[in-house]
């Protein structure tokens, strides 16, 4: 089944990036979210999928009974999910503020800070 999920991850990356290169910043945030899911699923998949048994030690035992899922990718993904959420939440609110401040959701209209000789940057 890993190969199926490899394709799924590919689709998540493709759709995520496609959304990110849209001109509307609102779509960018959706792209970011898909990309985050893609990365997590990628780690999960390349850590090899083991159907069933979660990595718990049964009561009274010292070790889980094999075969168990690899706990380390799970821990990594958990960290990544949470970090991704924090960053996403910030990005979401940022985009909202950008829209309110610039008055447009078209990224092509946000070019003043890259222009030469322009006082957009001074206080």
């Amino acid at each position: 089944m890993e190969s199926v999920f490899a394709v799924v991850v590919g689709i998540l990356y493709a759709t995520g990036l496609y959304l990110m290169v849209r001109r509307s910043i609102v779509k960018t945030i959706f792209g970011l979210a898909l990309l985050g899911n893609g990365a997590n699923l990628l780690i999960f998949t390349v850590g090899r999928l083991t159907a069933g048994r979660p990595p718990y030690v049964p009561i009274g035992a010292l070790e889980p009974l094999p075969p168990v899922a690899d706990p380390l990718p799970q821990a990594l993904i958990l960290t990544a999910i949470v970090i991704g959420f924090g960053v996403q939440a910030f990005a979401l609110v940022l985009i909202k503020r950008v829209y309110q401040t610039v008055g447009s959701d078209d990224v092509d209209e946000m070019t003043t800070t890259d222009r030469i000789a322009d006082d957009g940057g001074s206080r």
Partner: peptide, 26 residues
């Protein structure tokens, strides 16, 4: 472009998955 990069990620994963699993720290 998006499809190409997605495809590349898939290929890379398949490549890795085809490798033997190294005994690891888990």
């Amino acid at each position: 472009m998006a499809a190409a990069i997605g495809g590349l990620m898939t290929l890379l994963m398949l490549y890795v998955l085809a490798q033997p699993l190294v005994p690891h720290v888990s």
